[in-house]
């Protein structure tokens, strides 16, 4: 290329480039001229079923542990205490709730957003929503606590459950005793029959608490 051809090419290419940038500069005032979204003020809507954050409608939860069992990374922690019949209201789709949920924690730091926990839920209370903005300053804040009982209430519920348990155990023992006595009576009355079977007065252990499979 000749010397002056070089110069004219330099001028024309620079002019072309600068025309393009100036057009962008001018278009910056138009609404579609800029591609930045001012995020905290304005956000691009996510796809309708995008999986971001787990949520549990605790008033519908029956504490069936199905979600915790389904979770591949075991990030759901559930603790339940048996409730006396009739104390808890039914769920919105008419199921009976028989357990106090003293603990229903989801560790979002562990969660891998597979949403496998939402499928087995019989009451459809655990859902995954599109709220992606759960920035926390500390990792422990990512442990979401859904149980609506305060620690004191949990303590009280556990105490009451223990008392009830003991009561029930005592009642059972008494019942068993009475039954045994009645049996004994009947047996003594029907002596003619075969040998007296040994009655075991052993009381059955009642599982009051259902421990979760995983411990923290």
């Amino acid at each position: 290329m000749s010397y002056f051809g070089n110069i004219s090419k330099a001028f024309s290419t620079i002019a072309t480039g600068m025309k393009i940038t100036f057009r962008h500069f001018k278009n910056a005032r138009k609404p579609d001229g800029i591609f930045t979204t001012q995020y905290p003020h304005k956000a691009v809507p996510l796809p309708k079923f995008s999986r971001q954050q787990l949520h549990n409608r605790i008033e519908d939860c029956i504490g069936c542990m199905k979600c915790a069992n389904a979770c591949p990374v075991s990030c759901i922690y559930i603790e339940t205490v048996k409730a006396p019949a009739g104390t808890l209201s039914d769920t919105s789709n008419g199921q009976k709730r028989r357990l106090y949920l003293t603990r229903y924690d989801i560790d979002m730091a562990k969660c891998m957003f597979c949403a496998l926990c939402t499928y087995p839920c019989p009451t459809e209370c655990i859902t995954i929503n599109s709220d992606f903005n759960f920035i926390k300053f500390e990792r422990k804040d990512l442990l979401y606590k859904f149980s609506d009982y305060s620690p004191e209430q949990v303590e009280q519920i556990k105490q009451e459950a223990k008392l009830r348990e003991q009561q029930e155990a005592a009642e059972k023992i008494a019942k068993a005793k009475a039954a045994a006595e009645a049996k004994l009576k009947a047996e003594t009355e029907a002596k003619a029959k075969a040998e007296v079977p040994q009655v075991e007065a052993k009381t059955e252990e009642v599982k009051a608490e259902q421990k979760p499979e995983t411990k923290e």
């Binding site: 940038t21 100036f22 962008h24 500069f25 910056a28 001229g33 800029i34 591609f35 930045t36 001012q38």
Partner: peptide, 13 residues
């Protein structure tokens, strides 16, 4: 600001 506008950005806001 100028660089942002030329690159279709907003710059400091």
């Amino acid at each position: 600001k100028v660089s942002a506008f030329m690159q279709d950005r907003l710059g400091p806001m």
